[in-house]
C-alpha cells in the first residue's frame, strides 16, 4: 500500500480526501510512478485529460443518490468503478515505451493503460475500505488472469459501464453485471 494511504493520523476520513481533485491527481501521479517501476512500462500523462477525467468523475459522483449508512462501503466500490469507467473513457495516459521482452500474456503488458487505471482504482478502493470501514479488500485471482483481461477490454469497448462491474470482480466483490451503472441502496447488490 502506498505510504500516504497508510498514515492513519490524517483527521478526515479517506473517502472525503478522495473527493478532492488535488488528492486524486496527486495519488494518480504516484500510481503512475509505482506501476511504471513495477512493470517497466513508461507512461506519459496528459494533464488536461487527467483534470477533465477527474472533474467528469466528480460531477457523476455528486449526481448519485447518497448511500444509506449500511451501504456506504458498497458505495465506495461503486464510486471506484465510476472512476475506472471515466479513466478508460478519457484516456489520460499513453504508453511511451514498453519494457524489453514485454510479455503479452501478462495483464500489465497486454493492456498497460487499463492495468494502470485498475491499479489506481483498486488501490484507493482498498485503502478507503481498510481505513474508513476497517474492512479488508481481497482481490480476486482474476486480476492476474489475462483471459479475464481480454474479456474486460472487449466488454468496456462495447459498454464502458461494464468497467464498474469488472472492478468489483477484480476486487473480489459480487459484481452487478446487469445494470452496473446503477447503485442500489437496497441490499440486492
Amino acid at each position: 500500500m502506498p505510504p500516504d494511504l497508510e498514515d492513519s493520523n490524517a483527521a478526515p476520513p479517506l473517502r472525503k480526501s478522495a473527493q478532492r481533485l488535488r488528492w486524486l491527481v496527486s495519488e494518480f501521479e504516484k500510481q503512475v510512478a509505482r506501476t511504471s517501476a513495477e512493470t517497466g512500462t513508461t507512461y506519459a500523462v496528459d494533464r488536461d485529460a487527467l483534470m477533465s477525467a477527474m472533474a467528469d468523475w466528480l460531477k457523476t459522483f455528486l449526481a448519485q443518490e447518497r448511500p444509506r449508512p449500511e451501504r456506504k462501503q458498497a458505495f465506495v466500490g461503486f464510486a471506484a468503478g465510476l472512476m475506472l469507467r471515466t479513466l478508460i473513457g478519457k484516456k489520460p495516459v499513453r504508453v511511451v515505451a514498453a519494457p524489453e521482452g514485454a510479455d503479452d500474456s501478462k495483464p500489465e503488458h497486454f493492456w498497460p493503460e487499463g492495468y494502470l487505471y485498475v491499479a489506481y482504482c483498486i488501490t484507493i478502493r482498498g485503502a478507503i475500505i481498510e481505513r474508513d470501514f476497517h474492512g479488508t479488500q481481497r482481490p480476486s485471482q482474476m486480476l492476474g488472469d489475462v483471459r479475464t483481461w481480454w474479456s474486460f477490454r472487449e466488454n468496456v469497448e462495447e459498454d464502458p459501464s461494464s468497467a464498474i462491474a469488472f472492478l468489483d470482480h477484480f476486487a473480489g466483490d459480487e459484481p452487478n453485471w446487469t445494470v452496473p451503472d446503477l447503485f442500489r441502496n437496497d441490499n440486492s447488490h
Partner: peptide, 22 residues
C-alpha cells in the same frame, strides 16, 4: 491554499476543469 506557486497553478488548472465540466 497550496504552499508553492507550482501547486497553486495546478490548483488553478483543476478549477478550470471543474468550471468547464459544470
Amino acid at each position: 491554499r497550496e504552499d508553492t506557486i507550482e501547486n497553486e497553478l495546478g490548483l488553478l488548472n483543476m478549477a478550470m476543469a471543474l468550471a468547464s465540466e459544470f
